[in-house]
């Protein structure tokens, strides 16, 4: 569906990403993982056209890139226009892409979308400030899926949320993938969340791809030393296991 081909971006002498190539296949969830500074954000910005790469290109197998590729941002407190109501936010894509021209039609569609992501129809005339982080992220998801995209790019969509709410949003994304047949590029640093959601992984280290593989292969049998060390550091909510792991080093 979406292919990154040799993406390279430099800022002055600093190389943010170099020769990043991968393909997001139809119907799969691809995890893009790495630590801060690994180049995840730059890669995403190049993919959605917010940053122009110095070399390489992005290919999208479908018409109308702007409609077909949608994005959910990390910080739901920053990604919603504070002066628009939920109905306007979620309905905007329907309007600008000419999907639903009548205002009443948009409202009824928005109501359906809100219910799809687990919000209430009656929420649509409220402003973002009256929603919690998790609810805002649901609004952002509703906005993205409103235009019936083929690809959803999620940039750390749950890392700013409370633990008990993270799981809710992860479940919503999983449902969306199953119900809508979306291809999802899921950017994250939390390998436990990624394991839950992703079919395949691309591991970034210092702006380059360290390893690519299926979920089963990477979690059971990581090849790159970098992936191994990342996996070894994932904390587990089990005191006995943690003690064992620490004494092992």
């Amino acid at each position: 569906m979406l292919t990154a081909d040799g993406l390279t971006k430099r800022y002055g002498r600093f190389t943010a990403i170099e020769d990043i190539s991968f393909t997001l296949h139809a119907g799969e969830v691809l995890g893009l993982v790495g630590e801060s500074g690994s180049g995840k954000s730059t890669t995403v910005r190049c993919l959605v056209g917010l940053t122009k790469p110095d070399a390489g290109q992005v290919r999208y197998a479908g018409p109308k890139f702007r409609r077909g590729v949608q994005m959910v941002f990390q910080d739901p407190y920053a990604s919603l226009n504070p002066r628009m109501t939920v109905a306007e936010i979620v309905g905007e894509g329907l309007l600008v892409h000419g999907i639903e021209k009548s205002s009443a039609g948009r409202r009824s569609r928005v109501g359906g979308l809100l219910e799809q992501v687990g919000l209430d129809k009656s929420d649509m005339d409220r402003y973002p400030r009256s929603f919690s982080g998790g609810q805002r992220q649901r609004i952002a998801i509703a906005r993205a899926i409103a235009v019936e995209p083929k690809v959803l790019i999620c940039d750390e969509p749950v890392s700013a949320l409370d633990v008990s709410v993270q799981a809710q949003v992860v479940n919503v994304l999983r449902d969306m993938k199953l119900e809508l047949g979306l291809s999802i590029l899921f950017i994250a640093h939390d390998l436990a969340v990624v394991r839950y959601l992703c079919d395949r992984l691309v591991v970034l280290d210092g702006g380059r791809i360290a390893e690519t593989g299926t979920r089963e292969q990477i979690y059971a049998n990581p090849r790159a030393p970098y992936t191994k060390s990342l996996l070894a550091a994932v904390p587990v909510p089990d005191p006995a296991a943690e003690r064992l792991r620490r004494s092992a080093r």
Binding site: Y196, L231, V236
Partner: peptide, 16 residues
């Protein structure tokens, strides 16, 4: 609701 790498994968994450 904590996703964990030391458990078998489930269909859905438990949530509050």
């Amino acid at each position: 609701s904590v996703p964990r790498v030391d458990r078998a994968l489930t269909e859905r994450l438990d949530t509050v």
